[in-house]
């Protein structure tokens, strides 16, 4: 079996360079590649284009890369909850392209399935449609949206094996599997790295063919954005 294991986050991201386009998995702060983000901040690469559903919060997630001004452009569906993001956007330091969440996910999926474009009704008749080709199928208009082209995808999984097979846990799955399929080089950080053969092939969410490097992550904070609870009766 091909061994995809690298020693850690610094090793995994060592060839990410200024100007690269990165995909980062996660929804809010749930299922984000915490170790890779920390390593990117440490490495100090700049002018990055980041494709991620959200931009983190001021002091966590992609917000850490915004503090250090490493991001040139964000491609996201929702970027609230981040004051530093807002400041950089209004001052013109940061570009942002807002796209519908389903379009974001499906453009990742298309890349992973080897399809150059998709057609979606999301955004027809709105400013999202400006400059885009519209095709009518069965009486309904659809926008043509291109598959993403990302140099690296950085994803977080719950379990992974040395062959790069991944299993995600609960709603921390979100964008991670589709981004894992979409990167030219995909880097997976996992909470539990096991030997090939220890995961049931029937339970794999992302087959190892899509994963180029895998490492055992450490010190996961898994910060909760909105802690909501109920009282026991």
């Amino acid at each position: 079996m091909i061994n995809k294991v690298v020693s850690g986050a610094d090793d995994a991201i060592k060839d990410i360079k200024d100007g690269d386009t990165l995909m980062l998995g996660g929804f809010g702060l749930c299922g984000i590649p915490e170790n890779c983000i920390t390593a990117l901040v440490k490495k100090g690469v700049n002018k990055l284009t980041c494709i991620a559903n959200n931009a983190g919060v001021d002091d966590f997630g992609i917000g850490l890369m915004l503090q250090t001004r490493q991001v040139k452009k964000m491609i996201s569906s929702y970027v609230g909850e981040n004051a530093e993001f807002e400041r950089q956007l209004l001052s013109g330091e940061l570009e942002v392209e807002l796209i519908p969440q389903g379009t974001l996910a499906t453009r990742c999926m298309a890349a992973g399935y080897g399809m150059p474009a998709i057609f979606t009704p999301a955004g027809v008749g709105t400013e999202v449609a400006e400059g885009k080709e519209i095709r009518n199928f069965n009486g309904k208009d659809y926008l043509m949206e291109y598959a993403f082209d990302a140099d690296f995808a950085l994803v977080k999984a719950w379990k992974g094996d040395t062959a790069g097979n991944l299993i995600f846990r609960s709603t921390s799955r979100n964008f991670n599997p589709v981004m894992a399929m979409a990167g030219k080089i995909t880097i997976a950080e996992v909470e539990h790295l096991v030997e090939a053969g220890e995961l049931d092939p029937d339970h794999i969410h992302t087959p190892g063919v899509y994963v180029h490097r895998i490492f055992q992550g450490e010190n996961y904070e898994k910060r909760i954005e909105q802690r909501t609870t109920r009282k026991k009766d």
Binding site: S77, L98, P100, A122, T126
Partner: peptide
Amino acid sequence: VKGMGGAMD
């Protein structure tokens, strides 16, 4: 502008 999230879809 915070974004459309999934609303357009």
